[in-house]
Write a protein that binds this DNA or RNA. Structure first.
Length: 586
DNA sequence: GCCGTTTTCGGCCCGACTGTTTTCAGTCG
């Protein structure tokens, strides 16, 4: 049972206990622990016997710890099974739609006989649903829109689609509304999550209503869901919902903090404010004794007033960032500007879409000082993987392009398959001639966990395998990650001096944020690369930087923040000496 | 349910919106 499934059980328990009228605080404890479990950097099932380790997780007391142990041991929870039997199955289904909570869902099933989303749509369209207590026309109309949006495109959108969409809307607003200031995105997009549910925009302006009106009239807007004086909500052509809120300059800080979240982080900040005799809301901090409201132009000022350093949006998940901030131990996170090179790219020698020279020129335009050209190895027959002979020609071509391409250095490399038994797709002699060797799992992806773990660790033992690329091979929303003991792989990486790739390609984002966090704590060193197959894909590096930051990754820990000469001498070292070289940079 | 440099018992974030609620319930972010 993985963390997602365990979290699901506790979220279900929260719903059932709400329906039973149990204590709201008990319900909140379950909700909170469900979120906490989803953000864990390790699998609960792996540590279920270690009661001390479980109890150290926030929200884990006696009762929840024993429930987790029961789940890990049996795959089931007696209490969960009992409650599931007590309530109709449709309740949890209906609750997936925004606007429907536990109470409404139960009434819908009991009084209207709705069992699934199709039945829900019918009931909403016919007007029957609006007759339920405390629903009404307006709520029903909103629920129907949410439902149709969900049926059209699933519930969350990859950051690789959402961020460009947000930037297009922002550019259009700036152009049509000179009055707009401080326009920025907030929410999970600003926190850099790999998928987002909607786009939250904020700005300040002298005439807010005009800005809202402009938003509603943008050509890309398909549907206007709400339009007030300071808040507008629209659906753009890609199906994404965009919310815009306008405020005055004096209150921007509190509003930005509030709409960036996460909710858990906000709650912790409010609890902290409370202990200091203040109340925090989206307008500012109120002194409870005097009732005086203090405004803040930026987030730094609020954190400072609460006795904390600024906490980067990517860290705001209530995953230890407040404790670290208090101790003055927040990491100096990697920034986009730190990234000098890209160590994973493809050309039309294999499955890339552009010639070597074009890719080099594009990388330079994107601000890279060097790239590794890493086309595929023979087992990748569908991608035209290079034979040993072709690899040699490829290397000659890369070295020639390196000599003739101004403003950028090229490394001759390969993205080589790690075969099913952990052996490598090229002989050692061929690998020894390359500047850099990436190793990837591309086939036999359905191996069991032990086999896959042994396979990858065996490959890392090779003195030639410099970087382990996209560890889990997942494709977000399309292909599940391989079964693998990530912690064992990270420990082996440290032991062997193998670098772990943070693959920045939006469909992959592999390692994912929680993996990066765990690997970092074990001392792993990373390469942050785009896996570009087209010239414009070098721009994907920003998504990798966001995931790295979510994983608390410092700039010094990423080898392609090194200048070219230093990177070259890093790669020239025997693997066993490399980690020590990087660690000294802090 | 959990949690504690004010507490091992008594707390547990805050405001907006919608509805049919004459003082609050449900839901969301």
């Amino acid at each position: 049972m993985d963390n997602r499934q365990i979290a699901r059980v506790f979220a279900d328990l929260a719903v059932f206990l709400t329906l039973k009228g149990d204590s709201v605080f008990k319900v909140r404890a379950y909700e909170r622990v469900a979120e906490s479990i989803e953000n864990l950097p390790f699998e609960l099932a792996d540590v279920a016997q270690d009661e001390k380790r479980l109890r150290a997780i926030p929200g884990f007391g006696e009762a929840i710890t024993s429930k987790v142990q029961e789940l890990a041991a049996t795959g089931k929870l007696r209490l969960h099974e009992e409650l599931k039997a007590e309530f109709p199955a449709g309740v949890l289904t209906l609750m997936q739609v925004p606007g429907i909570g536990p109470k409404t869902a139960l009434k819908a099933v009991q009084e209207l006989g709705i069992k699934d989303l199709a039945g829900l749509e019918q009931s909403l369209a016919s007007g029957a649903f609006a007759q339920l207590p405390r629903v009404g026309e307006r709520n029903a109309a909103n629920i129907l829109r949410h439902l149709r949006a969900r049926m059209a495109q699933g519930d969350r959108v990859p950051i690789g689609d959402a961020l460009p969409a947000a930037e297009r809307v922002m550019a259009a607003l700036r152009q049509r509304c000179p009055d707009v200031r401080n326009l920025t995105y907030a929410g999970s997009l600003r926190r850099g999550r790999e998928t987002v549910g909607d786009i939250d925009l904020l700005c300040t302006a002298d005439r807010p209503a005009e800005v809202i009106a402009e938003l509603a009239s943008l050509p890309s807007v398909r549907d206007v869901m709400g339009k007030g004086d300071t808040k507008g909500s629209v659906v753009i052509d890609s199906g994404l919902q965009v919310d815009l809120r306008v405020t005055d300059d004096a209150s921007l800080g509190a509003l930005l903090l509030y709409f960036t979240g996460s909710q858990r982080h906000s709650i912790r900040l409010r609890e902290r404010a409370q202990k200091m005799g203040m109340s925090l809301n989206e307008y500012g901090l109120t002194d409870v004794a005097t009732g005086r409201l203090e405004h803040f132009e930026n987030e730094e000022a609020i954190y400072s007033r609460l006795g904390l350093p600024f906490i980067a949006p990517e860290l705001r998940e209530d995953a230890g960032e407040l404790e670290a901030a208090e101790r003055g131990e927040l990491p100096r996170l990697v920034e986009l500007a730190d990234i000098r090179g890209d160590l994973h790219s493809h050309t039309d020698w294999t499955d890339g879409r552009a010639p070597l020279e074009e890719m080099a020129a594009a990388a330079r335009r994107h601000g890279r000082q060097y790239i590794a050209v890493t086309d595929h190895s023979p087992s990748q027959t569908v991608s035209g993987g290079l034979s040993v002979e072709r690899l040699r020609e490829h290397t000659v071509a890369v070295r020639r392009a390196d000599a003739t391409s101004p403003g950028i250095r090229l490394l001759a490399g390969t993205e080589m398959d790690i075969l099913a038994d952990g052996s490598l797709d090229y002989p050692d002699a061929a690998l020894a001639e390359l500047d850099i060797v990436l190793g990837s799992v591309h086939g036999a992806m359905d191996q069991d966990r032990d086999t896959m773990t042994r396979r990858v660790i065996r490959a890392m033992a090779s003195p030639h395998l410099d970087v382990l690329a996209h560890l889990t091979t997942r494709l977000i929303g399309r292909r599940a990650p391989v079964e693998i003991d990530a912690e064992a792989v990270f420990k082996a990486a440290v032991e062997t001096g193998t670098v772990l790739e943070i693959n920045a390609s939006p469909p992959r984002l592999d390692l994912k944020d929680t993996h990066i966090r765990m690997a970092r704590e074990l001392g792993v060193v990373f390469a942050l690369s785009t896996d570009a197959h087209r010239p414009e894909e070098f721009g994907w590096v920003r998504y990798g930087v966001e995931q790295a930051r979510r994983g608390w990754c410092e700039g010094w820990r990423v080898i392609n923040t090194l200048p070219f000469e230093e990177l070259s001498s890093f790669l020239a070292l025997p693997k066993g000496e490399r980690y020590a070289r990087v660690a000294r940079r802090d």
